[in-house]
Amino acid sequence: MKRWLLLSLPLLILAGCQSSQSALETHGPSARHLGDLIWLFSGVATVIWLLVVLVMLVALARLPKHAAEGRAERDARMKPVVIAAVIATAVIVTGLTVASYFTTRAIGEPREAVLDITVRGQQWWWQFLYSDPGAGGFETANELHVPVGKPVRLRLESPDVIHSFWVPSLAGKMDLIPGRTNVLTIRADRPGVYRGQCAEFCGIQHGHMSLFVIAEPVEKYEAWAALQRSAAAVPDDADALAGRTVFLSKPCAACHTVRGTEAKGKTGPDLTHVGGRGTIAAGTLDNTRGGMAAWIADPQTVKPGNNMPLVTLAPEELRQISAYMESLK
């Protein structure tokens, strides 16, 4: 019983395949090509493994029959088998190489896109710059909204260290390299939330650098984009209003932007509509008033080594500032 339990433990790993972040649950063309390739390789490898085991068992069973055989005799008998195996190996390896080549070509093909988004890997969060020459651009963080079924071109950049953008359900990995721009076109074929994360070790908080791609129907996406383009509203709640004053008078405003106020810092995430995001600190905490307060009160304990300093606040100010952040929908 115990042994069976132990043996079934690796099956637990399979549980990871069912999630919003899986290369086997494909919802975009690039990911589908890669998924097919994974299945092809796994399938071929499995068949070969079974055949090898089978041949070995047959050989073992027939061992006594040929025990008295001389060397020359055996070589003569084995010759056709060995030749066949070598040819089969050459054919299979060539076949897989060709399949891999076509997959790489298919996912690398430049495609027309309806939307251009610059993705900048920061230490340790994702900055998304939406550029739209007609309607004006805006900036957001860690949550990439895209219209369903439409190809979106991502320009991947990094100011300092190498990151890798990986949303397994939509596309393969692509590195963000300082000093150059890599282009990745993604398309989500089904509305939903796809989790992704940094796939290249980039520093102490590499593990807390996740992102969410949120694919929505076009009308819903347009409504979201229109809201993002607008400046932050002045809150009517008394607490939040007081929080706004605290936010602007403390060092917060030196690093963060809230459009519509004097806060124009460029080094931290844009907070104009931070209240509308699902998580904070690149997926580290849920975006609730409590989560926000915990983060602001002591960012270095929640996510050690990140670049947000501890700003000393009175308990009252912390409450107000969290209320203000929550009000920025």
């Binding site: 008078s249 403390k250 060092p251 405003a253 030196a254 300093p309 501890l310 700003v311 000393t312």
Partner: peptide, 8 residues
């Protein structure tokens, strides 16, 4: 003074 924390 108002833009950076003491530690910074």
């Amino acid at each position: 003074r108002d833009r950076m924390t003491e530690e910074q």
